[in-house]
Design a protein around this nucleic acid. Structure first.
Lengths: 101, 101
DNA sequence: CAAACAGTTCGACAACCATCGAACTGTCAC
DNA sequence: GTGACAGTTCGATGGTTGTCGAACTGTTTG
């Protein structure tokens, strides 16, 4: 398989981040990623009853919007929130969205 | 004309707020409202080249998502960011979206 | 009252999007 | 190597959305 390029944070636009977050499935995924640890895409605990192709679509959307990065490990993939970069580019945004405070 | 009810902030969902903000036109409108002052819907300075019906659609979307309130003044309407309520319900969100810091 | 004005609503249209199943690609285990 | 496994991609489908023009509603001003 190919690779899964995340955009440079310099090219990430706020409106695209917000659009990606403006979907209940993706917002929930981001919540599960809040602790910063990479999570396998196969995770049972997403709490979502969707097919793999739909999940794949959302993972791609999050990655292309700049919110996550994909870590390939043989035949398994993990997804991780780009927390540090996001905090630098959009200070307070992730914190506010996750409701931490 | 009827009235323009804003939802109770208790009923406002984060995902709907984010979806409303995830559009370039509406994000720009919110930026213009950042100072908290009500702005007439007729404002020339929105910086948007759209018809009145399209603007009306976006104003409605923002209001129904809980982001703004409409102030009717005879035949003119003003729109205002619900800053205090939003700050209370989603601390730091508006600040982060507006890029204040 | 009549005309101008501010704004909404409606219908249409195209573009986009979430979802699914099926087919496909790459990797690991046997 | 062959089959199971993890994940992506593709095509289709139905629903949503952004945009416009035209018609409409309510308000102010002559």
């Amino acid at each position: 398989m190919g690779d899964y390029p995340s955009p440079d944070m310099a090219d990430v636009e706020l409106v695209d981040v917000l659009k990606a977050l403006g979907d209940p499935v993706r917002l929930q995924i981001v919540h599960k990623l809040a602790d910063g640890e990479p999570k396998p895409k196969t995770l049972d605990g997403w709490g979502l009853d969707l097919t793999k192709s739909t999940m794949s679509h959302h993972f791609r959307t999050l990655r292309e919007a700049g919110l996550t990065r994909t870590i390939v490990h043989g035949r398994t993939h993990a997804i991780q929130l780009r927390r540090d970069e996001l905090d630098q580019k959009f200070p307070g945004l992730v914190e506010a969205v996750l409701g931490e405070r």
